[in-house]
Design a protein around this nucleic acid. Sequence first.
DNA 1: GCTAAAATAGAAAGCGATTTCTGTGTGATA
DNA 2: TATCACACAGAAATCGCTTTCTATTTTAGC
Lengths: 340, 340
Amino acid sequence: MDVKKQATIVDVAKKAGVSVATVSRVVNGNYPVKQDTKERVKEAISSLNYVPNVQARELNTRKSSTIGVVVPGLHNMFFAEVIDGIEDAVRQDGFSFLLNCAKNDPMQEMNAINALVARNVSGIIVISPNTKNISERFYEELVARVPLVFINGYHRIKGVSYVGNDEKLGSQMALEYLSGLGHKDIMFVRGAKSDSYDIKEEAYRQFMEANGSLREDYILNIGEGNGVETVDSAMNALQGLIPRLKPTAICCCNDLMAVGALNACKRLGLSVPKDISIMGYDNISLSRLVEPKITTMDQNMFQLGSNAAKLLIENIHGGQSKRIMLDNVLIERETTGISM
Amino acid sequence: MDVKKQATIVDVAKKAGVSVATVSRVVNGNYPVKQDTKERVKEAISSLNYVPNVQARELNTRKSSTIGVVVPGLHNMFFAEVIDGIEDAVRQDGFSFLLNCAKNDPMQEMNAINALVARNVSGIIVISPNTKNISERFYEELVARVPLVFINGYHRIKGVSYVGNDEKLGSQMALEYLSGLGHKDIMFVRGAKSDSYDIKEEAYRQFMEANGSLREDYILNIGEGNGVETVDSAMNALQGLIPRLKPTAICCCNDLMAVGALNACKRLGLSVPKDISIMGYDNISLSRLVEPKITTMDQNMFQLGSNAAKLLIENIHGGQSKRIMLDNVLIERETTGISM
DNA sequence: GCTAAAATAGAAAGCGATTTCTGTGTGATA
DNA sequence: TATCACACAGAAATCGCTTTCTATTTTAGC
């Protein structure tokens, strides 16, 4: 491929008959330049299709207007929606972002982050659902060099900003809601290895225990898997369990599992919410695409993303690191009803 | 936030007691360096946590290992899945990528692209469903400076690589499949303003005409909208139309619409596929998450993405631009059956 | 042992910008 | 009219790296 060389500031200067300093000044508009010189330069710029080289500029100014984003992957809409929020906020501030997928692998996560540092990003947003994966040391050293924002993990590394929401509270709210509908026999479904699941299970145990109705066999762990395959795992497991355990409600750790539960019920000929109620978590778009639409606890991924990005940019500009907790709001839809 | 300054090559050189050239050489390993010097340098590097500044390197070598990606947005899983494929391929070659969302707005698309050029990306992948949006001139000038790959539009700009698949053929295959199942009364549902929809409608018209059963009222245009709201638009429109028009099958331009059709049928108390068959297009993950799972025409978004990325990298390394057409494969699932 | 070739290392130029430091004209002020 | 401030523009240093171009060792070949 025959790539034409980009015009540089020197070319523009030559064409306009001025020094490079002057060109730089009209481009940046931070220094007085006489009107007609300015115009001559502008003409040269547009006739040469000149676009200033951001890398050179950033090298010189030791600033960077790109941030890095590390997520497990995009096969799970959760992350796609978060990124949507990041993109939105980031663009408004004239930043760009580099996206990396770490596939839930701590090795890849570290590599990704090093690559971002090497690329001189001015800040990094990390979503890493499983914080046991990561080395605190690694992040402590990292945050000394570049502002960091975590989304939705349970990181206590000092100096690291955080945005998430209180999932323990959210789970309690979900359980209370179900309980208020008259449900006592509530199953809990979770996946393997995630802080989020652990927190939610804790909330479930406490709640059920307080109600005197905790049953170990009501707790279902469908194992690993982070993408859409979760749906089928949940469905398969539940299809066998529901007839035997006869819960009146199923409280799921995320919407994917809830869809799996819904599909299991359909296959079993159970009517939702008449025969059984299903509660999701997250409010990914999928939850309102299926029929009936799933009642769920909103995490507002877009907000998660845009808040993280805004916070990061604040930090980049020297702001204090902080922790932002978003509100839990229960989205009542069609998969929950009163217990018969 | 108190950001520690990154160690530079000069710091390393000083610490190791060698010249910067030597440090550069052990980092890049492209020039002989004595074993013990090498070790001294390596020690200095790790003790200083030195990470070479990619921007400086790229400025010097006039190479860049980041590419740019422009998509309409991520609220539609189609694009998320494509990006997943891009990420995968790109990472394997040591590249990074900048992601931009253009929201189907030609202005934003051009801005995004200029921002990418300014950031010195070595190539750009563009997904722009509506090619009427774009200015051919703009892209013609662009491709003279940087390799370009389009995904899934109908661009005929010379020198621009392309990966997509023959949607006309795909639509024909879908229709033939439905026809083979005995369906004659086949509705067609599309959205507004997209080359892809136009192509598919053309295929539909030709097919139905050839069968002598083209009916204008069987063609439904649900209007604009690119995200998940498509599902409800399709559902709402179809809920009124199906009882009146009594089609035995519905052929949709994408899976979102198919899910909408499915939901409409559920609400109307129609059993799918017993009473009516539904056919999607794309094979986004949603299509196999709903119950019953949707029969669809696979576009293999992951392949679309990874092929585009590989092709782009090939072009960056000097390869000829080319057009790659992926195979259409019909994924027979649970929403289609023989016509009664 | 002597010379040619290879291995090894430093100095310095250059990548494309920004910005400080200087130096001019010019209009306003005294 | 002399002076001062300011508007305007260029020269040159600098950012962190790679890569010639040189210069010095080693090593090899005979």
